[in-house]
Design a binder for these strands. Structure first.
Length: 763
DNA sequence: TAGGATCAGTTGTAT
DNA sequence: ACAACTGATCCTAGT
């Protein structure tokens, strides 16, 4: 039986709660603000919403917000400087590429020194890395094995060590020494060595992001198919009823069409990524995988596959088979490289640092999930046995039941373990099972499995449990779920002040929101069929959302057309996903260096809507006068669609949008946003979300009550699966040199978000 | 909530 | 070329 994780001392849990999640290494831009803030004494009244006329205190400003570009000056400058910049960038990239290709040999020797900054470079690095891996097994990772504990056997039917095996052990020792040597070299390189690790972790992040995109795409495909199947069944039933009346016999539709069960979108996503060569680390390898640290959380088995951590979504033991013997002659194959401990075997025994793992086979896959046959020393079992004899460490992942995951399960990488010994015995059900004693290698980060388990459970259940609470609900009851504010940084702790909470957009006096609501779809209750729903057609004949998990955006789009006031569907329609208000329990918390920040107590799956950016909808040029307002968000829907002003180009329904673009062009829209949302004095939770160069949210413009791109609603969606208590961030999206000061000079703002790929400048 | 069908890549073996 | 192997996932049926 798999032991529970309660074997961890309570102390370690307490320790955790005493030390809140480390705050990312972000330097505050406005350091001066903090001291002034400390002097302000503000009592948070009743509902916690400050008076509207309270002066916006600098304390509320984490770092400078997405400020309106100084429009006129930019207009003049953009065209000229953009061209110049592009030329410069192209020249720099070319030079870098050349330098890179020349330096490859040298850098490979050092095994480091890769700049994470430029995409072009990153690609070069990725490729080189793979080439490296295809010829090296077990190198480049720190593997420290203790001697004297490598005897084979120890259990019932232990095998005895042979002369040949002794030789192998010697070989193994030699390998170990080499690894240590390599490690020393790495240490010498010092800081430079840390860089590629970060780059790799970004690659891991991006690969998982890509997986999520494919995953949601296939979820959508399946939802469509199942929806159609359901409609077909309904129609078939109706037809049968009719024909019964007439006395005719109608055959049932073939099973294929009526089947309602969805094919597994996760597996389809894996297949797709294999087909596209998008799998990270496609070669199996011994030891740790760079970019995946101990404690890394996976949200499904499929995630492990796409980053090359464990190459099968189903097998417990991942091993390198005989085919690897052709390329690598330093091992006797098969050898195991990774295992998943998920408690599926009745004979498992798990004490965290010390595990008795049951081999594979003889397991009743359906029903009671117990042993029904004897296990044999073959496949994964043989691979684990070979690990004992050849001192090959294996990666260990543990599965946990957890609500904070879309699959209800979390897999945590617990580090490298060595297979100490193995034996065969009669298991609980009376069949022969192979057992492997695993011991965690020393010198690794403290085991995090239990911490993660309890971190998730540490989310407060009531306001009484919240530490450092300074405000019960900054929304003053406007949102369905209250948003508390906590402050464990300031002394005395102060709540966020200087703004009025508003759930929805307010419009400035001199701005007229388009009132001509577009014609709506004629669907009833919920929009289902994307081939007939007009709103779906506007999005390119597909709904932008999947129904799963209450609505998730499949991918970032130029603009999303949602159902609006003239649509026949109700509020529960999937194509109103962004209109349903806050879905997750959010918290505003004070950080030491970044001012206020936002995090969620709930798990947020990728593509889920987090919040809208609200405030006062204003003319961008009116904001020019307000030089110190740091809460201005330009509505850059048009720019995003056109892919200008530093915006990434996204997929769009070209046909429908071309029409809208023509309209806006007629109205003389330039490359600079005309309108913006000013959350300086009035806004919602979004005004507290900080910038990060590698964020976990992204901005998505949404149209529902009208089709004017200049007034699109601004929504923030989850870009990744976001675990509870992780700070929420998005990219403020400045083009470098796009902000000018009052004298028309280019203004520069350093970025201290601390991400590996930080651009070092906010603008 | 429990049971069971399904899913698809890897591996080893048979042809 | 093919079958065996594997346990996560999700739907369905039952309580």
């Amino acid at each position: 039986m798999t032991s529970s994780y309660t074997s961890i001392p309570i102390k370690s849990i307490l320790h955790l709660s005493e030390n809140p999640r480390p705050i990312s290494m972000v330097e505050q831009v406005n350091n001066a603000e903090k001291s002034s803030n400390c002097k302000i004494k503000i009592k948070c009244s009743g509902n916690g919403v400050p008076k509207p006329n309270e002066k916006s205190s600098a304390a509320d400003s984490p770092i400078q917000r997405r400020t309106s570009a100084r429009i006129k000056a930019v207009k003049e400058k953009t065209a000229a400087s953009e061209l110049q910049l592009r030329r410069k960038a192209a020249a720099a990239a070319a030079a870098a590429a050349e330098e890179e290709s020349l330096a490859v040999g040298e850098k490979e020797k050092r095994g480091s020194g890769v700049s994470p900054a430029k995409v072009g470079k990153k690609r070069c690095y990725k490729k080189r890395k793979r080439d490296e891996e295809s010829v090296v097994v077990g190198e480049g990772d720190v593997v420290v094995l203790e001697r004297g504990n490598e005897s084979v056997g120890g259990g019932g039917e232990a095998e005895v060590i042979s002369e040949q095996q002794k030789k192998k052990l010697a070989k193994c020792e030699a390998r170990r020494l080499k690894l240590l040597e390599d490690n020393d070299e790495k240490m010498d390189v010092g800081n430079a060595a840390a860089k590629p690790e970060k780059t790799d972790s970004l690659q891991v992040k991006e690969t998982i992001r890509l997986f999520n995109k494919h995953y949601l795409h296939f979820v959508q495909e399946e939802e469509k198919r199942c929806g159609k199947a359901q409609a077909d069944r309904k129609a078939a039933r109706a037809a049968r009823k009719q024909s019964k009346k007439k006395g005719k016999i109608v055959k049932d539709a073939p099973l294929e069409e009526t089947k309602n069960s969805a094919k597994r979108p996760d597996l389809k996503a894996i297949s797709k990524m294999m087909e596209n060569n998008e799998i990270l680390n496609p070669e199996k390898r011994v030891g740790s995988i760079s970019g995946i640290e101990v404690g890394h959380q996976f949200y499904s088995r499929a995630e492990m596959c796409v980053v090359g951590f464990h190459s099968h979504w189903l097998n417990g033991i991942d091993y390198m088979g005989q085919s690897y013997a052709k390329v690598h002659n330093n091992y006797e194959f098969p050898i195991a490289v990774a295992i998943v401990i998920s408690g599926m075997y009745e004979d498992d025994l798990d004490n965290a640092e010390d595990v008795v793992y049951t081999g594979q086979g003889g397991h009743n896959l359906t029903g009671d999930k117990r042993q029904i046959r004897d296990q044999k020393l073959e496949r994964g079992n043989l691979a684990l046995k070979n690990c004992v004899e050849q001192c090959v460490p294996i990666r260990v992942v543990r599965g946990h039941e957890s609500r904070s995951s879309y699959t209800g399960k979390i897999y945590t990488y617990d580090g490298l373990y060595k297979v100490v010994n193995y034996w065969a015995e009669k298991g609980i059900s009376g069949f022969t099972v192979y057992k492997f004693r695993l011991r965690r290698l020393e010198g690794q980060p403290v085991l995090t499995t239990n911490q993660v388990y309890f971190t998730c459970g540490r989310v407060p259940q009531s306001s009484a449990e919240i530490r450092g609470l300074v405000c019960d609900d900054i929304t003053g009851g406007q949102e369905d779920t209250p948003i508390p504010a906590t402050n464990l940084v300031d002394d005395p702790p102060v709540p966020p002040t200087g703004f009025t909470y508003c759930k929805s957009i307010k419009v400035a006096k001199n701005v007229k929101l388009p009132m001509d609501a577009p014609t709506g779809c004629k669907c009833k209750d919920k929009c289902v069929d994307p081939t007939t729903c007009e709103c779906a057609l506007r999005n390119g004949s597909d709904f932008p959302y999947v129904s799963k998990d209450g609505g998730r955006l499949v991918e970032a789009k130029g603009v999303v057309f949602e159902c609006g006031p003239n649509c026949g569907c109700g509020p529960g329609c999937v194509n109103r996903t962004s209109q349903k208000g806050l879905r997750y329990r959010l918290e505003v918390f004070r950080t030491a260096k970044k001012g206020w920040a936002v995090r969620s107590w709930d798990f947020i799956p990728s593509g889920a809507p987090v919040c809208e950016y609200t405030g006062i909808l204003s003319r961008a040029e009116d904001m020019e006068r307000l030089s110190e307002n740091n809460y201005i968000f330009d509505i850059d829907c048009l720019q995003t669609i056109k892919g200008i002003g530093g915006r990434e180009r996204r997929s769009t329904n070209a046909a429908f949008i071309a029409n809208l673009l023509d309209k806006s062009d007629e109205q003389g829209s330039e490359s600079v946003p005309e309108y913006c949302i000013d959350a300086g004095s009035t806004g919602n939770i979004a005004r507290f979300i900080n910038h990060c160069c590698e964020p976990n949210l992204f901005v998505q413009c949404v149209l529902s009550t009208h089709h004017d791109l200049k007034f699109a609603r601004v929504m923030l969606f989850a870009a990744d699966n976001i675990p509870p208590l992780q700070e929420l961030t998005y990219d403020y999206g400045y083009a470098l040199d796009s902000v000018l000061d009052s004298d028309g000079k280019v203004k520069q703002m350093p970025c201290y978000c601390g991400a590996a790929g930080c651009r070092k400048r906010l603008f």
